[in-house]
C-alpha cells in the first residue's frame, strides 16, 4: 500500500498478489450488491469499493481498478484535498496501526510519502518486521506501541517536509 500526499491530493494505491479478477468480475466487484457467495453464503456484502468510487466521484478525485486473473489487483484512489466535500483523513497513526494488526499470516507493506513546502520524504514499514519486533500484533500493548510508532514516524515526516 502506498499513501502519497501533497498539498493538493492524497493518493492511495493498494496492490495485492491475490487471485485477481477477469474483466467481468472486475465490473461486478464495483457493484455493492454483488458477492461471489463463497465466504458468506446467501448474503451480499462488499460496500468498500463502491464507497471509495462514490467518494472520489463526488469530490473531483480519481479512481482506477485493474486486475489480472491469477496475478493480483491494483486499486488507486486519489482524493482531492482541496474539495470541500472530501472526508477528513482521520488519525492516520491509529489507522495504520490497526491495519498492520489485522489478523492473518499475510505480509503487508506500507509506504507513506508526504510532500510539503520543505520537500518530500517517506517511510516504509513491513508487517513482518513489526511482528518480529513485537512478537504479537493482537494484544493491547502491541496495538498501543504500534500507534506510538506510527505517530513518531508521522511527526518526523511532517517535521522534515514543512
Amino acid at each position: 500500500m502506498v499513501l502519497d500526499q501533497d498539498e493538493q491530493s492524497f493518493t492511495m494505491t493498494v496492490t495485492d498478489n491475490g487471485k485477481g479478477m477477469d474483466e467481468a468480475e472486475l465490473v461486478r466487484a464495483q457493484d455493492p450488491f454483488y458477492t461471489d457467495g463463497v465466504k458468506h453464503r446467501h448474503r451480499k456484502v462488499g460496500l468498500g469499493l463502491p464507497f471509495v468510487i462514490q467518494t472520489t466521484r463526488m469530490t473531483d478525485g480519481w479512481f482506477q481498478i485493474t486486475s489480472r486473473k491469477g496475478e493480483g489487483t491494483t486499486v488507486i484512489a486519489r482524493f482531492n484535498l482541496q474539495h470541500w466535500d472530501t472526508p477528513p483523513l482521520g488519525e492516520l497513526p491509529a489507522t495504520l496501526g490497526q491495519l498492520m494488526a489485522l489478523g492473518g499470516d499475510h505480509e503487508a507493506t506500507v509506504v507513506r510519502r508526504l510532500t510539503g513546502p520543505g520537500g518530500s520524504s517517506s517511510y516504509e514499514d513491513k508487517r513482518s518486521e513489526l511482528l518480529e519486533a513485537l512478537g504479537s500484533l493482537e494484544d493491547l500493548q502491541s496495538l498501543t506501541l504500534l500507534r506510538e510508532y506510527f505517530r513518531s514516524q508521522e511527526l518526523e515526516l511532517v517535521e522534515v517536509t514543512k
Partner: peptide
C-alpha cells in the same frame, strides 16, 4: 476505528494489560 482507539486508551488508562484485541 474510533471505538477501537477508545478501548486502547481506556484500557491503558486503567492499566489493564491482559487483553487481546481482534479485528
Amino acid at each position: 476505528k474510533e471505538t477501537l482507539d477508545a478501548f486502547v486508551n481506556e484500557l491503558n488508562s486503567k492499566d489493564i494489560r491482559n487483553v487481546v484485541i481482534k479485528q
